[in-house]
Nucleic acid binder design. Structure first.
Length: 813
RNA sequence: GGGCGAGUGGCGGAACUGGUAUACGCGACGGACUUAAAAUCCGUUGGUCCAAAAACCUUGAGGGUUCGAGUCCCUCCUCGCCCACCA
C-alpha cells in the first residue's frame, strides 16, 4: 500500500501542466470568457507571504471551478515591480533595483510553480519592463493632452524616510502607509492627476458594479460628496469679500463669528494693524505643527482675532473674523461661518474665547446639526431665524437658499473631499515622466515614436532631502532638445508612483506582447470587463480607486469599450499570526507558507487549510493545526482510492449513496458559487467519511466508481495535485482540471422520508421519521399517538397545531 | 467624532427565507492495533444535576415581537477595520 506523499506527487504534475499549457487562455475562443483577476504582487525579497497565498489560493479555486464549467478562463499573473518597496529593498541589499527585481521575480516564479496555481504563464507582465512602461508613459501623455495631468507648485505630503512626495491616499493617520514614517510638508513643484474631475463618475459608477457594501461605502466616504452653498460675506470698511462654504446654510442666523484657515490669503488684506503681530505669530505656530497634531480633535481649539468684521448678508449683523487651524485651507474655501449653537467645534471655540452663541433650533441649547437631522429631520424646528423661525429645517433650507440666490450673494455648491492625485515621486525606481521642459514651449510631451523614455542605469540612485530626483544628476538623461523647436531643453526627472503601472495592468494581460498599442481593440472587446477581481481591503482607496479613475478616463477618450473595469470586486481577509496580532518580522511571528509545503504537507495541504480556515473575507488567526487537519483529510481521500479488496457484488444501485453523490455535488457547487469555500470543504469531508464507511460493504462497481470520481472532481479546485494524481489512477484521459464539472440530478435528491421534529410549546420533545407524502391529518394522528408526546400533553387542551412541511410540528397547549 | 462589521464550546468556525444551536475541523479524554511509539481505526466531548433515564440552562447583557428567535425590533456593553477638526 502506498502512502500519501505530496512531495512525490506535486513536482511531477507541475512539469506536466506547464509543458501542456493546460491553463492557457485563448483569445477569441468561442467558449464564454471569464477573467479571474487577483492583484499582482510586488516582488519583495521575502518571497510570497501568507496574504499572497490566501488571495491566490481563493482566486485559483474559483478559476479552476469556472474552467471546469466550460469557460475560457483568463487567470493571469504578473509583477508590480516598480516603486518604493522594491527600491528600498535594493538599497538595503546594496544592489541595483534592476538586479534585486529580477532576482526576486525568479524566486517568486519558483514559488508559484511549487504552489501549483493555474496561471496562464504565457501572459506574464512586469511593470518595470520597458516594453510595458512604454504604455504607462503613453497613457500618461493621454492625461496630459486632455489637461488632466498638470504641474502645480504646492505644499505636499513628504515622507522624510523615503524622501519623496506622497498622495493624499498614501498618508494614513499622518504616516506614510508603506514605512509608517510621520509625514511632513514640503513645497515642491509636482505633477498632479485631476482625479477630482472624476469624483462624480467614480460615485455613480459604483451603482453599476457588484462591490461589497463596505468597499463601496469606503470609496463613497473617501470621495466625500457634500451638498451645500457658497455664501459671500462683505467685510466692514473694506472692499474685500469673504466667501465661505457651508452645508448648513439654514443656520445662517446663528452665525456669531467667522474663521479663516491660517494660510488664507485674505488674512493679509484684512487684519487690523493692532492685530498683525499676534496674527503673524499664530500663523507661524500653525505652520510648524505636524499634520498629526493639527488633526487631533482632542486638541483644545486655538485661534486669534483679526480685528476685522464681516457683515451677515441676511440680517446685517457684524461678525468678528478669527483665524484658527481647525479650519483647513484645502477644503471648501478655507473659511467658515461659525454657528456655535449647532456645531461642536464652533461651540468649543466660542466657549474658549467667550464668543456669543445663538441657538437656531427650538431646543434652545447646543444641538449638533448632523445629529439632529439624522435623528428626525421633521422634528428639527428652526428658531431665532427671523421670519424662518418655526419652519422645519428642510423647509427653511429651501427658502434660505432661494433667498441667497435671489439676492445674488451665494449659490448652491457641491463639494468633494477627494483631492487631486499627486503623481510625481522624487525617486529613481519608477517610470520616467515623458515630458520635456522647453524654455519657450514649457512642458512638451515626448513624441510617441520616442517612447519609452528609458530609465537610465545609474550607480547613485539614492534619494535626497532636497526634493530632487536622482535622475536630475544624470546629465545625458536630463539634457535634450525640444521636440517642437529643437532648443536645448531639460527632461522631467521625477518618476511616477508605483500606483501608475498597476492602474491599467489588467488590460495588458489581454495583449501582453503588442508593441503597437497597449492592447488591440479586438482583444479589449473580446475580453471586456474583469469578471471577478479579488484583492486586499487596504487597496480600496488606493489602487482600486486609482484604476477605476484611469479606466473611466480611457473610456471617455474611446480607448476601452466599458466604463468600469471590474464587474465584481471582493476583498479577502487578513490572516493574523497565531496570537491574533498582525504577522510582522519585528514581532517574529511570521509564518512562511513555503515552509509548510516543505514540511511535507504539500501545496494541496496548504491550499486546503487556507480555504477551510474561515470565510474568505474574514480576518482570522492562523493555526498550525489547521494544516494537520487538511493533510489528514487528503490522506483519507488517498487511502480511499487505495482500497483494493472491495466487494462489488451489489447489482442494484444504493439509493442512499446516490442521494449522497447528488447532494454533495449540489452543496459544493452552491458553496463555491457563493465563495463559501470553508463549508464546501466540510461537505466534502462529510461525504468522504460516508464513502469511507460504505467501503466495507458490498457495492455496485459503476456506482462506486462514479462516487469516487465525483469526490475528486469536486476536490480538484482545492487540491489540484492530489485530484490530478487520483484521476490519472482511474485511467481517465486528459487533465481533471479540464474535465466537466459534475451536475447533480434533482430526482435523486427527493427523499422518501423525512425526520420530523416534534415540539411542545416550542420545546423539542421528540423526533419521528415519516414518509414524505404523508398528509397533515395522518401526521397529526401519528404525533398524538407518540408515547412521549402523549405523556407530555396528558389532559391539557391542544390550542394550536403548527405543521412545517417535512420539517417540524409544534403543539401549543 | 463619523462609516462599516462582528460577539456562538477549550480553539478555528457551522446554522438556507424565523423552524433539531454547536455541522466540519482542531484539541482533549477513553479504547483497538503495536514489544513500544507514530500513523490509522472505533467511541466520548456546551453546561448543571445524575447510577441511569429524564429534566433544566446555554449563541455578549437586558427587554420585546412570535406557536417558535443565534437569526427580527429596542436599550446597553465589548471588540475589529476604515476615515477623521471636511464646515
Amino acid at each position: 500500500m502506498e502512502f500519501y506523499k505530496p512531495s512525490k506527487i506535486e513536482p511531477k504534475w507541475q512539469k506536466i501542466w506547464s509543458k501542456k499549457e493546460i491553463y492557457k487562455a485563448q483569445d477569441f475562443s468561442s467558449k464564454p470568457k471569464f477573467i479571474m483577476l487577483t492583484e499582482f504582487p510586488y516582488p519583495s525579497g521575502d518571497g510570497l507571504h501568507m496574504g499572497h497565498i490566501r488571495e491566490y489560493t481563493l482566486g485559483d479555486i474559483y478559476a479552476r471551478y469556472i474552467r471546469m464549467n466550460g469557460y475560457n478562463v483568463l487567470f493571469p499573473m504578473g509583477y508590480d515591480a516598480f516603486g518604493l518597496p522594491a527600491e528600498n529593498y535594493a538599497i538595503k541589499q546594496h544592489i541595483s533595483p534592476q538586479q534585486s527585481t529580477s532576482k526576486n521575480i525568479s524566486n517568486f516564479k519558483k514559488q508559484f510553480e511549487k504552489l501549483g496555481f493555474s496561471f496562464d504563464q504565457s501572459r506574464e507582465i512586469n511593470t518595470s519592463d520597458p516594453k510595458y512602461y512604454k504604455w504607462t508613459q503613453w497613457l500618461f501623455l493621454q492625461f496630459f493632452k486632455k489637461g488632466l495631468a498638470y504641474q502645480e507648485d504646492t505644499l505636499i505630503n513628504w515622507c522624510p524616510f523615503c524622501k519623496t512626495g506622497l498622495s493624499n491616499e498614501e498618508v494614513i493617520n499622518g504616516r506614510h502607509e508603506r514605512c509608517d514614517t510621520l509625514v511632513t510638508k514640503k513645497k515642491l513643484k509636482q505633477w498632479v492627476l485631476k482625479i477630482t474631475d472624476y469624483a462624480e463618475k467614480l460615485l455613480t459608477g459604483l451603482k453599476t458594479v457588484d462591490y461589497p457594501k463596505n468597499i463601496a461605502d469606503q470609496q463613497i466616504n473617501w470621495i466625500g460628496k457634500s451638498e451645500g452653498a457658497l455664501i459671500d460675506f462683505e467685510i466692514k470698511n473694506s472692499n474685500q469679500k469673504l466667501t465661505i462654504f457651508t452645508t448648513a446654510h439654514d443656520t445662517i442666523f446663528g452665525v456669531t463669528f467667522m474663521v479663516l484657515a491660517p494660510e488664507h490669503p485674505l488674512i493679509a488684506k484684512i487684519t487690523k494693524d493692532e492685530q498683525i503681530a499676534s496674527v503673524r505669530s499664530y500663523q507661524k505656530m500653525a505652520e510648524s505643527k505636524s499634520d498629526l497634531d493639527r488633526q487631533d480633535d482632542n486638541n483644545p481649539k486655538t485661534g486669534v482675532f483679526t480685528g476685522a468684521y464681516a457683515i451677515n448678508p441676511l440680517n446685517g449683523s457684524h461678525i468678528p473674523i478669527w483665524i484658527s487651524d481647525y479650519v483647513l485651507m484645502n477644503y471648501g474655501t478655507g473659511a467658515i461661518m461659525s454657528v456655535p449653537g449647532n456645531d461642536l467645534r464652533d461651540y468649543q471655540f466660542a466657549k474658549k474665547y467667550e464668543l456669543p452663541i445663538i441657538y437656531t433650533s427650538k431646543e434652545n441649547e447646543f444641538v449638533s446639526y448632523q445629529d439632529q437631522i439624522k435623528k428626525d429631520p421633521t422634528k428639527y424646528i428652526m428658531a431665532h431665524s427671523e421670519e424662518f423661525s418655526g419652519l422645519t429645517f428642510k423647509e427653511g433650507r429651501k427658502r434660505i437658499l432661494k433667498l441667497i440666490e435671489d439676492k445674488k450673494i451665494g449659490k448652491k455648491q457641491i463639494q468633494y473631499r477627494l483631492r487631486d492625485w499627486i503623481f510625481s515621486r522624487q525617486r529613481y525606481w519608477g517610470e520616467p515622466i515623458p515630458i520635456i521642459h522647453c524654455p519657450d514651449h514649457g512642458a512638451v510631451p515626448v513624441p510617441e515614436n520616442e517612447l519609452p523614455v528609458l530609465l537610465p542605469k545609474i550607480d547613485d540612485y539614492l534619494p535626497s532631502d532636497d526634493g530632487l530626483s536622482p535622475l536630475s544628476k544624470v546629465e545625458q538623461f536630463v539634457n535634450t532638445t525640444c521636440p517642437i523647436c529643437n532648443k536645448p531643453s531639460k527632461r522631467e526627472t521625477n518618476t511616477m508612483p508605483n500606483w501608475a503601472g498597476s492602474s491599467w495592468y489588467y488590460l495588458r494581460y489581454f495583449d501582453p506582447n503588442n508593441d503597437q498599442q497597449f492592447a488591440s481593440k479586438d482583444k479589449l472587446k473580446y475580453w471586456g470587463k474583469v469578471d471577478f477581481y479579488l484583492g486586499g481591503m487596504e487597496h480600496t482607496t488606493l489602487h482600486l480607486l486609482y484604476s477605476r479613475f484611469w479606466h473611466n478616463f480611457l473610456y471617455d477618450i474611446g480607448l476601452v469599450p466599458f466604463q468600469e473595469p471590474y464587474a465584481k470586486r471582493r476583498g479577502q481577509g487578513i490572516i493574523l499570526a497565531t496570537d491574533g496580532t498582525k504577522m510582522s518580522k519585528s514581532k517574529g511571528n511570521v509564518v512562511n507558507p513555503i515552509d509548510i509545503i516543505d514540511q511535507g504537507y504539500g501545496a494541496d495541504g496548504l491550499h486546503l487549510a487556507i480555504a477551510f480556515l474561515a470565510p474568505y473575507d474574514q480576518t482570522t488567526p492562523w493555526s498550525p493545526e489547521s494544516v494537520v487537519g487538511a493533510y489528514r483529510f487528503l490522506d483519507r481521500v488517498y487511502r480511499l482510492f487505495q482500497k483494493t479488496k472491495l466487494d462489488f457484488s451489489l447489482k442494484e444501485l444504493d439509493f442512499d449513496l446516490e442521494y449522497q453523490i447528488n447532494y454533495v455535488i449540489k452543496t459544493v457547487t452552491e458553496d463555491i458559487e457563493g465563495l463559501n469555500f470553508n463549508t464546501a470543504l466540510s461537505s466534502l469531508m462529510e461525504y468522504t467519511n460516508k464513502l469511507y464507511k460504505l467501503s466495507t460493504q458490498p457495492l455496485n462497481k459503476d456506482q462506486w466508481q462514479r462516487a469516487l470520481e465525483t469526490l475528486i472532481q469536486l476536490l480538484a479546485p482545492f487540491s489540484p495535485f492530489l485530484s490530478e494524481e487520483l484521476w490519472s489512477g482511474l485511467s481517465r484521459k486528459g487533465s481533471i482540471h479540464l474535465s466537466a464539472w459534475p451536475k447533480y440530478r434533482a430526482e435523486y435528491l427527493i427523499k422518501s422520508s423525512n425526520l420530523i421534529v416534534i415540539q411542545v410549546n416550542g420545546k423539542l420533545r421528540s423526533k419521528i421519521e415519516v414518509s414524505s407524502n404523508i398528509s397533515d391529518q395522518q401526521l397529526k394522528e401519528i404525533v398524538r399517538n407518540d408515547p412521549r408526546i402523549k405523556s407530555i400533553i396528558g389532559n391539557s387542551k391542544i390550542s394550536r397545531f403548527i405543521i412545517v412541511k417535512n420539517r417540524l410540528v409544534n403543539i401549543v397547549i
